[in-house]
Design a protein around this nucleic acid. Sequence first.
DNA 1: AAATAAATGCAACTTGATTGCAAACAATAT
DNA 2: ATATTGTTTGCAATCAAGTTGCATTTATTT
Lengths: 140, 140
Amino acid sequence: MDQQAYLEKLEKRGIKPTAIRLLILKTMIRLDRAVSLLDLENELVTVDKSTIFRTITLFHGHHLIHGVDDGTGSLKYAVCSHDCDCSISEQHTHFYCEQCHRTFCLKSIHVPIVQLPDGFSVQSINYVIKGLCAECSTHE
Amino acid sequence: MDQQAYLEKLEKRGIKPTAIRLLILKTMIRLDRAVSLLDLENELVTVDKSTIFRTITLFHGHHLIHGVDDGTGSLKYAVCSHDCDCSISEQHTHFYCEQCHRTFCLKSIHVPIVQLPDGFSVQSINYVIKGLCAECSTHE
DNA sequence: AAATAAATGCAACTTGATTGCAAACAATAT
DNA sequence: ATATTGTTTGCAATCAAGTTGCATTTATTT
């Protein structure tokens, strides 16, 4: 993925591309999983945590990234696919590995939808499976 | 539900029934939904929050209650059904109302299970639907 | 180049969760 | 009954993560 592609990703969502924003976006794409603010702070020690926080808030507000509640207590974030509008039909399954503590986006697996009782209406769905990831299953 | 039933619920899980533990258990059953530590603190102003915390930790460790991550950032807890062993087949769907901020246990709706990629194994599943509950849908 | 606006870093604050310790309480042994 | 021991609880302090205020830097516009 070249520089131009990252720039476009930001501009497509109406985000002015600064050096730090590009850096954070690249890092998130490189890590290729749902990361917490702390994950990013550890990865980008030169960037202040308030900047990371505000950048993530901005990204989230512009639907460049989506939030995942993986049950660790802290919300995690992952880059949305190119044309994601974050509707329910777009939402995929997430997997949290209890061993390596990484949260994976299983992009090819849609969130399942169940029939709700009368009167309940859906706005979003959080579906997280916890267990052992492929890597941790074999390295034991 | 009489006093005896609450006592049994505790003893069945190997928890010594003190007055405060009974009070917290009764409150959780009365509220009949997944509650946060803060919810309990507000409900039980006479009980210290550290006591509530330690009681909930104890209940959870003894599988008297289960944790639900409803995406509000703070873990919530609800009383397990009588014979629950907290296995996956026991786990039900939860619903978080964006309006009244209550988290419901939809006990009759099992969590759906999807096929995972090779090598991934499941330990537990967190499935939370967010939207409007029946009450909030009508009172608008 | 000056003026204005936006982005960033630093430090402080907030909130909720957690822990240390002493007092209260319960259970047991003498 | 009383002493002894262990458990439970409340209070206060701590901790960690998220968040905000403000000054500084950087970018944009005039």
